[in-house]
Amino acid sequence: MLDPDQGLRILDCKATDHDYLHKDFHGALCYGIKYLDDHYGHEATAEFLRQVGRSYYAPLSQQLKEDGLSALEKHWREVFTKEGGRLSLEFQDGVLTLMVHECPAIAHLKKTNRLFTPRYCETTVVVNEAICGAAGYKSSCQYEPGEGRCVQKFWKTKE
């Protein structure tokens, strides 16, 4: 920054100067879900989320297929570590259970007053189903809208 007295300010940053973590993106996604619901209906929103699950998360589905549920455990631990959320994971009788005690997305949406729709958590429900479906797995997610807590379960489909 230079010479503020003359009204001149400069900010020069390299990509490596900061960590990539822009939580306001949760708000933009939340707005997108509300927009799709309002303009195209709930089924269109679900189809969009399935598209995200099948396309962007295809490598995660592939890892799930190859490595089993440990791939999802690794994924969720990484996401929650980066975002500063609180979770616990347990594996029992072939079921991976993810207990979210504090969802970092909901916490940020509430803090910034950007929880545009109570249906935001459908992103988790539908994207998980798409990721798992492509790998021969199933998932469930129990949540109360806007609470920031949920229980997600993952298991292999019986052949």
């Binding site: 949760h26 995200v52 396309s55 980066k82 975002e83 969802c103």
Partner: peptide, 12 residues
């Protein structure tokens, strides 16, 4: 949850 670090591909 779609992480905010994974938002851009979802946006696209």
């Amino acid at each position: 949850m779609i992480s905010c670090t994974e938002f851009i591909p979802a946006y696209s």
